[in-house]
Amino acid sequence: MIRVIVVDDEALVRSGLRMILEAAGDISVVAEAVDGADAVRAVARHSPDVVLMDVRMPVMDGIAAAGQIASVAKVIMLTTFDLDEYVHAALRAGAVGFLLKDTPPRDLAAAVRTVAAGNAMLAPTVTKRLISSYADQRPARATTARQQLTVLTGREEEVVRAVARGLSNADIAKELQMSEATVKAHVSRSLAKLGVTNRVQAAILVFESGT
Protein backbone atom coordinates (compact mmCIF):
# COMPACT_ATOMS: atom_id res chain seq x y z
CA MET A 1 0.00 0.00 0.00
CA ILE A 2 1.37 3.43 -0.99
CA ARG A 3 1.12 5.91 1.89
CA VAL A 4 0.19 9.46 0.82
CA ILE A 5 -0.30 12.81 2.53
CA VAL A 6 -2.55 15.32 0.75
CA VAL A 7 -1.74 19.00 1.28
CA ASP A 8 -4.08 21.81 0.21
CA ASP A 9 -5.59 24.80 2.00
CA GLU A 10 -9.07 24.02 0.61
CA ALA A 11 -10.96 21.27 2.42
CA LEU A 12 -13.05 20.43 -0.65
CA VAL A 13 -9.93 19.86 -2.73
CA ARG A 14 -8.39 17.63 -0.05
CA SER A 15 -11.57 15.56 0.17
CA GLY A 16 -11.71 15.16 -3.61
CA LEU A 17 -8.09 14.08 -3.83
CA ARG A 18 -8.53 11.61 -0.97
CA MET A 19 -11.57 10.07 -2.67
CA ILE A 20 -9.75 9.75 -6.02
CA LEU A 21 -6.61 8.23 -4.54
CA GLU A 22 -8.25 5.78 -2.15
CA ALA A 23 -10.54 4.55 -4.94
CA ALA A 24 -7.40 3.28 -6.68
CA GLY A 25 -7.17 0.42 -4.17
CA ASP A 26 -3.41 0.43 -3.64
CA ILE A 27 -3.12 3.97 -2.22
CA SER A 28 -3.88 5.04 1.34
CA VAL A 29 -4.18 8.71 2.36
CA VAL A 30 -2.67 8.60 5.84
CA ALA A 31 -3.08 12.31 6.60
CA GLU A 32 -4.16 15.69 5.28
CA ALA A 33 -2.46 19.05 5.84
CA VAL A 34 -3.74 22.59 5.36
CA ASP A 35 -0.47 24.36 4.54
CA GLY A 36 3.25 23.78 4.12
CA ALA A 37 4.11 24.02 7.81
CA ASP A 38 1.34 21.55 8.64
CA ALA A 39 2.72 19.27 5.91
CA VAL A 40 6.20 19.27 7.43
CA ARG A 41 4.73 18.19 10.78
CA ALA A 42 2.52 15.56 9.13
CA VAL A 43 5.47 14.03 7.27
CA ALA A 44 7.46 13.76 10.51
CA ARG A 45 4.49 12.08 12.18
CA HIS A 46 3.34 9.69 9.44
CA SER A 47 6.43 8.93 7.27
CA PRO A 48 4.54 8.82 3.93
CA ASP A 49 5.88 7.49 0.64
CA VAL A 50 4.46 10.39 -1.37
CA VAL A 51 3.25 13.91 -0.56
CA LEU A 52 0.77 15.45 -2.99
CA MET A 53 1.02 19.18 -2.35
CA ASP A 54 -0.49 22.40 -3.62
CA VAL A 55 1.93 25.17 -4.58
CA ARG A 56 0.12 28.26 -3.29
CA MET A 57 -0.90 28.10 0.38
CA PRO A 58 -0.82 30.44 3.40
CA VAL A 59 1.70 30.24 6.27
CA MET A 60 4.21 28.23 4.21
CA ASP A 61 3.80 27.54 0.50
CA GLY A 62 4.28 24.16 -1.10
CA ILE A 63 7.68 24.96 -2.59
CA ALA A 64 9.16 25.97 0.76
CA ALA A 65 7.70 22.84 2.34
CA ALA A 66 9.09 20.66 -0.45
CA GLY A 67 12.55 21.97 0.34
CA GLN A 68 12.18 20.67 3.89
CA ILE A 69 10.66 17.26 3.20
CA ALA A 70 12.02 16.16 -0.20
CA SER A 71 14.86 14.27 1.46
CA VAL A 72 12.46 12.00 3.38
CA ALA A 73 9.38 11.79 1.12
CA LYS A 74 8.73 12.03 -2.61
CA VAL A 75 6.89 15.25 -3.42
CA ILE A 76 4.43 15.84 -6.25
CA MET A 77 3.41 19.47 -6.69
CA LEU A 78 -0.19 19.97 -7.76
CA THR A 79 -1.40 23.36 -8.99
CA THR A 80 -3.94 25.20 -11.07
CA PHE A 81 -1.26 27.52 -12.40
CA ASP A 82 0.92 26.09 -15.16
CA LEU A 83 3.70 28.65 -14.70
CA ASP A 84 7.37 28.04 -15.42
CA GLU A 85 8.46 29.92 -12.30
CA TYR A 86 6.60 27.38 -10.16
CA VAL A 87 7.99 24.41 -12.08
CA HIS A 88 11.61 25.55 -11.82
CA ALA A 89 11.29 26.48 -8.15
CA ALA A 90 9.58 23.19 -7.30
CA LEU A 91 12.23 21.10 -9.04
CA ARG A 92 15.04 23.05 -7.40
CA ALA A 93 13.35 22.39 -4.05
CA GLY A 94 13.48 18.66 -4.71
CA ALA A 95 10.00 17.82 -6.04
CA VAL A 96 9.94 14.80 -8.35
CA GLY A 97 6.52 15.42 -9.85
CA PHE A 98 4.52 18.37 -11.11
CA LEU A 99 0.89 17.97 -12.17
CA LEU A 100 -2.01 20.26 -12.94
CA LYS A 101 -5.21 20.10 -10.93
CA ASP A 102 -7.19 19.19 -14.04
CA THR A 103 -5.23 15.92 -14.32
CA PRO A 104 -7.72 13.04 -14.87
CA PRO A 105 -8.26 10.82 -11.77
CA ARG A 106 -6.70 7.74 -13.37
CA ASP A 107 -3.58 9.75 -14.31
CA LEU A 108 -3.33 11.18 -10.80
CA ALA A 109 -3.23 7.71 -9.23
CA ALA A 110 -0.76 6.56 -11.89
CA ALA A 111 1.50 9.52 -11.09
CA VAL A 112 1.53 8.60 -7.40
CA ARG A 113 2.49 5.02 -8.30
CA THR A 114 5.21 6.23 -10.67
CA VAL A 115 6.77 8.54 -8.10
CA ALA A 116 6.48 5.96 -5.30
CA ALA A 117 8.45 3.56 -7.53
CA GLY A 118 11.30 6.05 -7.72
CA ASN A 119 10.60 7.69 -11.06
CA ALA A 120 9.77 11.28 -11.97
CA MET A 121 6.34 12.39 -13.17
CA LEU A 122 5.81 15.70 -14.95
CA ALA A 123 2.77 16.77 -16.91
CA PRO A 124 3.61 16.45 -20.64
CA THR A 125 3.19 20.18 -21.30
CA VAL A 126 5.49 20.94 -18.38
CA THR A 127 8.15 18.51 -19.63
CA LYS A 128 8.22 20.02 -23.12
CA ARG A 129 8.57 23.57 -21.85
CA LEU A 130 11.13 22.58 -19.23
CA ILE A 131 13.40 20.98 -21.82
CA SER A 132 12.94 23.96 -24.12
CA SER A 133 13.72 26.38 -21.31
CA TYR A 134 16.95 24.65 -20.39
CA ALA A 135 17.91 24.35 -24.05
CA ASP A 136 17.55 28.13 -24.36
CA GLN A 137 19.84 28.67 -21.37
CA ARG A 138 22.31 25.97 -22.44
CA PRO A 139 25.27 28.13 -23.54
CA ALA A 140 25.57 29.80 -20.14
CA ARG A 141 25.21 26.60 -18.14
CA ALA A 142 26.76 23.97 -20.40
CA THR A 143 30.37 24.25 -19.24
CA THR A 144 29.51 23.88 -15.55
CA ALA A 145 27.11 21.01 -16.21
CA ARG A 146 29.69 19.15 -18.32
CA GLN A 147 32.26 19.51 -15.57
CA GLN A 148 29.82 18.06 -13.05
CA LEU A 149 29.16 15.05 -15.26
CA THR A 150 32.87 14.22 -15.46
CA VAL A 151 32.74 12.79 -11.91
CA LEU A 152 30.75 9.84 -13.26
CA THR A 153 32.20 6.63 -14.63
CA GLY A 154 31.29 5.75 -18.22
CA ARG A 155 28.62 3.31 -17.09
CA GLU A 156 27.16 5.75 -14.56
CA GLU A 157 26.92 8.42 -17.24
CA GLU A 158 25.09 6.00 -19.54
CA VAL A 159 22.59 5.35 -16.77
CA VAL A 160 22.11 9.03 -15.98
CA ARG A 161 21.52 9.85 -19.63
CA ALA A 162 18.91 7.11 -19.77
CA VAL A 163 17.29 8.61 -16.68
CA ALA A 164 17.21 11.97 -18.49
CA ARG A 165 15.27 10.31 -21.32
CA GLY A 166 12.62 9.34 -18.78
CA LEU A 167 13.39 5.63 -18.66
CA SER A 168 12.50 3.59 -15.57
CA ASN A 169 15.04 1.34 -13.85
CA ALA A 170 13.47 -1.65 -15.59
CA ASP A 171 13.76 0.02 -19.01
CA ILE A 172 17.37 1.00 -18.35
CA ALA A 173 18.22 -2.52 -17.23
CA LYS A 174 16.82 -3.93 -20.46
CA GLU A 175 18.52 -1.35 -22.66
CA LEU A 176 21.94 -1.58 -21.00
CA GLN A 177 21.72 -5.32 -20.30
CA MET A 178 22.17 -5.21 -16.54
CA SER A 179 20.04 -6.12 -13.55
CA GLU A 180 17.58 -3.65 -12.03
CA ALA A 181 19.54 -3.87 -8.76
CA THR A 182 22.69 -2.76 -10.58
CA VAL A 183 20.83 0.11 -12.26
CA LYS A 184 19.46 1.23 -8.90
CA ALA A 185 22.96 1.17 -7.42
CA HIS A 186 24.34 3.19 -10.35
CA VAL A 187 21.53 5.76 -9.98
CA SER A 188 22.12 6.14 -6.23
CA ARG A 189 25.88 6.56 -6.64
CA SER A 190 25.44 8.99 -9.53
CA LEU A 191 23.01 11.21 -7.63
CA ALA A 192 25.44 11.36 -4.71
CA LYS A 193 28.40 12.18 -6.95
CA LEU A 194 26.47 14.89 -8.80
CA GLY A 195 25.23 16.43 -5.57
CA VAL A 196 21.55 16.21 -6.60
CA THR A 197 18.68 14.71 -4.65
CA ASN A 198 16.56 13.05 -7.33
CA ARG A 199 16.26 11.83 -10.91
CA VAL A 200 14.63 15.03 -12.19
CA GLN A 201 17.55 17.16 -11.03
CA ALA A 202 19.98 14.72 -12.67
CA ALA A 203 17.99 14.96 -15.90
CA ILE A 204 18.11 18.76 -15.77
CA LEU A 205 21.89 18.58 -15.45
CA VAL A 206 22.06 16.46 -18.60
CA PHE A 207 19.80 18.92 -20.46
CA GLU A 208 22.03 21.78 -19.34
CA SER A 209 25.21 20.04 -20.54
CA GLY A 210 23.96 20.04 -24.13
CA THR A 211 25.78 16.76 -24.84
Rank of each mutant, 00 (worst) to 15 (best):
D8M: 00
D8R: 00
A11F: 14
L12E: 12
V13N: 11
A24C: 03
G25I: 11
V30F: 11
A31D: 15
V34W: 09
A42P: 13
V43S: 05
V43E: 08
L52I: 02
D54C: 06
M60T: 01
I63E: 06
I63F: 10
G67M: 08
A70I: 02
A70P: 00
V72H: 12
V72L: 04
V75I: 09
D82T: 04
D84I: 07
V87Q: 01
A89W: 05
A90N: 12
A90H: 06
L91W: 00
L91Q: 00
G94K: 04
G94R: 06
V96T: 14
L100M: 11
R106T: 13
D107M: 06
L108C: 06
V112P: 11
V115W: 03
A116V: 08
A116T: 05
V126S: 00
V126M: 02
L130A: 10
I131S: 06
S133A: 15
S133M: 10
A135T: 15
A135C: 09
T144P: 04
A145H: 12
Q147M: 14
T153C: 01
G154H: 08
L167W: 14
N169L: 10
A173F: 03
E180M: 13
E180S: 11
E180K: 13
A185N: 14
R189D: 10
R189K: 15
L191H: 01
L191V: 04
K193S: 10
G195F: 11
R199V: 14
V200K: 08
Q201A: 04
A202N: 08
I204N: 02
